[in-house]
Design a protein around this nucleic acid. Structure first.
Length: 273
DNA sequence: AACGGACTCAACCGCATATTG
DNA sequence: CCAATATGCGGTTGAGTCCGT
């Protein structure tokens, strides 16, 4: 049933639009529906894909009688109806991955989505725009600036890892160290990407992840300088994968790292620069 | 309870690229 | 090789919801 807000678009159909088994005659005018999908339309699309498989989206209108463009059908299937689509809050681990991958690939949403099973490019894009970009603005910082990227990479991501670790520790009662150095370390640490190709004792720089005194942008920036534009090294990727391994379930997916306290911490850090 | 601004996210749009005839 | 068509991608929009006043 069309609602008041449902818009429609008139399209001149051609045989090629409908495929070989087109139900429409040449130049027949078809009103293509726009706007939110109904359960009935979803059902038609699901049945179509079950029978014909994915693809041939432009044939759906002709074959299944669904008055939607091929693009609309494809999007609806990929972002909503496809099996194994994960819905709900982005978990801490997913946030960590998004930050990591975005720092390497930029706005390559589909590529990033490939690394987050069940998440769609649309969802990740929305997360980035509604959370990360929003908070960057709040911090009066360009989300694409080196300063912001470095802060994310060398402060925010370790902080996320810390939070994930704490969550796992609280739930499982076991410690999984993300810093796999053999020496006992009294402080949280983060691996400096640029230096990992030449592992030394200076590879790991202590960072106060809890936002207390002592850690500031200025004191970290020199250490970051050399590696800030390099891609994450294998060992750091391994560390993030370890985070995944110690997170057997995502039952703390609703945890939001963008708390007032954390944002205040970032503000201080960026202001120190 | 009513209002309005902020926020979220599903869906659309335009463009780029791939495929097909 | 070229044109037409299909598909994919990233940016943007706007309806619905939330939340503070």
């Amino acid at each position: 049933m069309d609602t008041d807000y449902t818009k429609s678009v008139h399209m001149m159909r051609t045989l090629s639009d409908c495929g070989s088994s087109a139900a429409y005659t040449n130049e027949e005018v078809v009103v293509m529906k726009k706007g939110p999908w109904t359960a009935e339309e979803d059902s038609v699309l699901i049945n179509y894909v079950n029978v014909h498989g994915e693809g041939h989206w432009n044939s759906i209108a002709g074959i299944a009688g669904l008055k939607r463009t091929g693009k609309s059908c494809r999007l609806r299937w990929l972002n909503y109806l496809r099996p194994n689509v994960r819905r709900g809050n982005i978990t801490l681990h997913e946030q960590l991955l998004i930050l990591d991958l975005h720092s390497r690939w930029g706005n390559r949403w589909s590529k990033i989505a490939e690394q987050l099973p069940g998440r769609t490019d649309n969802e990740i894009k929305n997360y980035w725009r509604t959370r990360v970009v929003k908070h960057a603005k709040q911090l009066k910082c360009d989300v694409n600036s080196k300063k912001f990227r470095d802060t994310m990479r060398f402060v925010w991501m370790p902080r996320l890892m810390e939070q994930i670790q704490a969550s796992n520790f609280g739930r499982q009662g076991q410690i999984t160290t993300l810093c796999n150095n053999t020496k006992a370390h009294t402080e949280p640490c983060v691996t400096m990407p640029s230096m990992l190709s030449v592992p030394t004792s200076s590879d790991r720089v202590p960072i106060n992840l809890m936002g207390g005194g002592g850690s500031s942008w200025s004191s970290l920036s020199d250490s970051f300088e050399k590696g800030s534009t390099s891609t994450l090294c294998t060992s750091q990727k391994r560390e993030y994968s370890e985070v995944q391994e110690v997170e057997p379930c995502n039952d703390f997916g609703g945890v939001d790292m963008w708390t007032d306290e954390n944002i205040c911490f970032l503000q201080q850090l960026l202001a120190d620069d």
